[in-house]
Amino acid sequence: MTQRAEHTTVMDRLAIDDLITDYAIAVDDGDWPGYRALFTGDGRADYRSAGGIEGGAGEISAWLRTTLGRFAVRQHLIVNRRIRVVSHDGAPGDTATVRADYLNPMRPAGPAAGPGDEPADPAGPAGPHFTFAGRYDFAARRTPEGWRLTGVVVQEKWRQMPPATG
């Protein structure tokens, strides 16, 4: 591999890592236009293993807005990122995959929470807390605007929820 190809690969890996970080921030901050902008026009996501839906970025962002709007605090920690840029004859290609683990603690919103983008009082109630964990499989493609997601598959491995009261 030439130095030019190595440099390009490093730059691609950094851009893809930023894409994954932007994904987590958009979800945690409820930035749904920003979330949709991370995907290609034909990009899809699959949250079915976590009790969700599968669909295009627009459909998924609407579902996430409603589902995650119930939580005042959301924090997606996406770690152990294994980035693979597909190469062609030793040169960096225009597609990549990322496999990464996630840990997602969340706290419900207080009673004043609404269905909007912004959760109600972030201080919210002290508990209960929910924690979800698993693995993401991301697929990405180089576009004129930079790297964009073509696919996201969530593989939930475990969850911890507060005990039922009643």
Rank of each mutant, 00 (worst) to 15 (best):
A37V: 03
R44A: 13
G34P: 06
V27W: 09
Y47G: 01
A37R: 13
V27P: 02
G51A: 12
G56D: 10
D42L: 08
R36C: 14
G58A: 14
I53C: 09
E54A: 15
A37S: 15
A26E: 10
D46N: 14
Y23R: 01
L38M: 08
G30F: 05
S49G: 11
I53W: 07
V27A: 12
G55H: 04
P33W: 01
V27Q: 08
G52I: 09
A24D: 08
D31Q: 00
D28N: 03
E54R: 13
G52Q: 13
G51H: 11
T40R: 00
D31S: 04
A50H: 03
P33T: 02
G55Q: 01
G51Q: 11
R36I: 13
G34A: 07
P33Y: 02
P33M: 00
D42F: 06
G56H: 07
A45N: 03
W32E: 07
D42P: 02
I53R: 12
D29H: 08
D42Y: 06
L38H: 04
L38V: 09
Y47F: 15
G30H: 07
Y23Q: 01
D42W: 06
W32R: 05
L38Q: 07
E54Q: 14
F39I: 03
G43Y: 10
P33H: 03
A26N: 10
G41M: 07
A24C: 13
G52D: 13
G52F: 06
G41E: 11
A26D: 09
A45P: 05
D46F: 14
L38N: 08
F39K: 00
G58Y: 05
G56V: 10
A37Y: 00
G51V: 14
G43V: 09
D31H: 01
T40C: 06
R48V: 15
A50N: 04
Y35P: 04
T40L: 01
L38I: 12
A37F: 02
Y47R: 00
R36H: 03
G41R: 10
A26G: 08
T40F: 03
R36L: 09
A37M: 04
G41V: 10
Y35F: 15
T40G: 00
G51M: 14
Y23G: 04
G56I: 09
W32N: 05
T40M: 02
G52K: 10
Y35R: 06
G51N: 14
V27L: 12
T40I: 02
G52E: 11
G56P: 07
F39R: 00
I25N: 13
D29M: 11
A24E: 07
A24G: 12
F39E: 02
A45S: 15
G56N: 08
I25A: 12
